[in-house]
Amino acid sequence: MTARVGVITFPGTLDDRDTQRAVRIAGLEPVSLWHRDKDLKQVDAVILPGGFSYGDYLRAGAISRFSPVMEKVIEGAREGLPVLGICNGFQVLTESHLLPGAMLRNNHLHFICRDQKLRVENADTAWTSDYEAGQEISVPLKNIDGRYVADERTLDELEAEGRVAFRYLDGNPNGSLRDIAGITNAAGNVVGLMPHPEHAVEPLVGTGRTDGLGFFTSILKKLVNA
């Protein structure tokens, strides 16, 4: 039996199906979780996919953060459960304070949708071990609230501890401080990023590259070797 990865659907989530598909392609079993679920169905890892949960009302991710399923995710994450937040999922993780900082409106105020080059800065997390540190990948980026901000002290801390997991290359697309595209918690089990690896797992669609597949094969290795 292979490992089971929960994919949460909030009202307004868009990328849950693509994420489940990416999980399946990597050889894992996707398990659908609903925002009202009060348990995580004994999954081995959780992914919070992209979209506009609760219409981004109040702030992106602010209302989802208080959903019943998130109570369990927060509890699990603190005990080492691997959690990946993509785009809106990253916003939910910062609102939950599982990851530091916050996401704000892009500095140019436009929705952006394009292939984005990234550098993998930390290949030691649960979700990035199948990459090499310094590896350059290209995956789609699509958002309007993608500007990562945190105070200087937090940014210095992230840099010093190697917790900047991904950085934008070839131009900063949204004004994110220090070109940060994604970060990890200190333990390396919780990772969040704005770009979308789940849209780059098959040669037939998207960039034509499969640069995003590494997220899912990383977690497969971690769970199967555990």
């Binding site: 704000l104 500095n107 140019h108 105020l109 500007r147 901000v149 004004g175």
Partner: peptide, 13 residues
């Protein structure tokens, strides 16, 4: 309100 040190591109627009 956004903290004073946080860039507010909407206000700027």
């Amino acid at each position: 309100m956004l903290k004073p040190e946080i860039l507010d591109p909407q206000g700027q627009a």
